[in-house]
Design a protein around this nucleic acid. Structure first.
Lengths: 236, 236
DNA sequence: CTTAATTGCGTCCATTAGACGCTTTTAAAA
DNA sequence: TTTTAAAAGCGTCTAATGGACGCAATTAAG
C-alpha cells in the first residue's frame, strides 16, 4: 500500500514490482542481496510452513539480514507475496502440437500440479490481481492452444478463465491433505449423521462416494466436462 | 485455534461453533448479546468495509461492548468469520420443479449473486472448510436438482463442486468493481503494449474483447459450457 | 579528492488476536 | 431466605505484525 516510485510515475507499485525496469545506476554500496533471492526465500518459506509463516522478519532471518533491509528491494509485503506467486508458477510447458483439446488438457493438468505443489498460491490469488510475467506466459500458452478453434478472442479468454477457476478450486480443496475427500467426509460424517433428516440427498451422495471407494479425481472429472462443453460450442 | 468446549468433546471448535448445541444452563447473569447479533455485526462490517475491517475490537464497538466479551460467544476470530460466511450465504432458493438444467442454472446464478453481494466471502472460503448449515442446505438443494439425472452420487457431488468453483472464481474476479474486465484490461494495457512481442495472442485477444464491447458475462458463458458438458455426460 | 546517491538497518509505532483472572450477576440448592 | 457456584463482562497484558523514518557507512561519478 505504499508508493516506492523514485520518479513521479503514475503506475501503482504492484505493477512496477512485478514488471521491473532494469535501470541500475552505479552509485552507492553494492547490494548484498538480489530481489530474486528474497523472492525465492519467501516462496521456500511458504512451501514449508505456509503463507502465514512468511513474515518480513522471517524472510530476513533466512537471508541473514535485518528486516528493514528487505524494503530496499521490495516495496512491501503485498508485492513480495505477488512476486513469490509468480515465482512459484514458473514458465508454462510448451506443448505446441496436437489438437486443442489435448493441449488444453495438458495445460490445465500441469497448472493444477504446480498450484497443488504450492498450496499457499491459492490463498493469495484473490480478487483482481496484476498478473506477473509467468502468469501472463501461461495465458499466452493457453491462447495458443485455442488458435485452431473458431472461437473469438473474447470466448477464448472466457474458456481459459473457466479452466483456471476449475484448477484453482480443485487444487484448493485438496490443499493440506492428500485425501481431501475422505477427510471432508470424515468431518461431515458426524454432522450428516446428526442432521440426516435435513440433508438426506447429501448424506446419500456421500455414502455413495465412500462405498464406491472413488479416488480423488473430482478435478479430472470436471476438466473433461468443461472440455466437452467447449467442444460442443466449437462444433456449432 | 482454541478449544472452547465445556465438556471434553472431541470435535474441533469450528464444528461446534458452526453447529452449536442449544444446552443452556440457567445459572449466571443473562447474556447481554446473542451470538447472532455478533455474527450479523461482523457480516455487516465486512459488507461495508471489507473483511479486513472486521476486527474483534470493531465488532465489539459496534455492539457497544468490550472486545473480550465477544469471546464468551465465539471461540475466536476464525470461528466468527466462518459464522459470518454462513450467515451471508443464507438459505438456498427452493426451485423444486423444471428440468435439472434450468434448476441448476438458477441455483448457480443465485449463488453467484449472493457471493457477489458479499465479496469478502470469497476471501475466506479457502481450503477444506467445515460447511455451515446454510452451506449444506445449498448443497442439498443442488443435489435435489440432479436427482432426475442418471448420475451417481459421486458424480453429482463433482458436478456441484465444479459449479461452485466456477461461481467462486467468477465472483472473485468481479469483486471490488462492477466492470472488472474493463479494469483489468486497463491495468494490462500498458504491460501488453510494452511486451506485445512476448504475448501476441494475449494482446490480440484483449483487443478483440475491447473492440467487441462485450459486457462482463464470462460467468454465464462458462456456466453454459459446464452445463453443456454435464448434458453430454447424462446423454450417454 | 569531493560529492551525492544508495545501502543496511536500529529504533519506534500502531494494530492485531488472544490469555488470564477478577468482579459482578443470578439461578439453583440448602 | 440464605448459600453457593456457574456464567457474564471485561481490564490488563503480551507477543507478533507491517512499516515509517532517519542515520551512518559505502562507493562510483565528477
Amino acid at each position: 500500500m505504499s508508493e516506492a516510485a523514485p520518479e513521479p510515475g503514475s503506475a501503482p507499485s504492484l505493477t512496477e514490482a512485478l514488471w521491473p525496469d532494469p535501470p541500475r545506476t552505479k552509485r552507492g554500496p553494492k547490494p548484498r542481496l538480489t530481489r530474486d533471492e528474497i523472492v525465492s526465500a519467501a516462496a521456500a518459506t511458504a512451501d514449508t510452513d505456509g503463507i502465514d509463516a512468511v513474515t518480513m522478519q522471517r524472510v530476513a532471518d533466512v537471508l541473514g539480514v535485518a528486516k528493514m533491509s528487505l524494503y530496499r528491494y521490495v516495496p512491501g509485503k503485498t508485492e513480495l507475496v505477488a512476486l513469490a506467486l509468480d515465482h512459484a508458477l514458473g514458465n508454462p510447458p510448451a506443448l505446441r502440437s496436437g489438437p486443442w483439446r489435448d493441449r488444453l488438457r495438458g495445460w490445465a493438468i500441469e497448472l493444477h500440479r504446480r498450484m497443488s505443489a504450492h498450496p499457499w498460491s491459492l490463498d493469495i490469488t484473490v480478487g483482481t490481481r496484476i498478473p506477473g510475467p509467468h502468469e501472463l506466459a501461461w495465458f499466452e500458452e493457453g491462447l495458443l492452444a485455442l488458435r485452431e478453434t473458431p472461437l473469438d478472442g473474447s470466448q477464448r479468454l472466457d474458456v481459459l478463465a473457466m479452466l483456471t477457476f476449475h484448477v484453482r478450486g480443485s487444487a484448493q480443496q485438496k490443499s493440506g491433505s492428500d485425501r481431501p475427500e475422505a477427510e471432508l467426509a470424515e468431518l461431515l460424517g458426524p454432522i450428516l449423521a446428526t442432521h440426516s433428516d435435513r440433508f438426506p440427498e447429501t448424506a446419500a451422495a456421500f455414502a455413495d462416494r465412500v462405498d464406491g471407494a472413488r479416488r480423488d479425481d473430482a478435478f479430472s472429472f470436471g476438466l473433461d466436462r468443461i472440455l466437452d462443453g467447449v467442444a460442443t460450442l466449437t462444433a456449432e
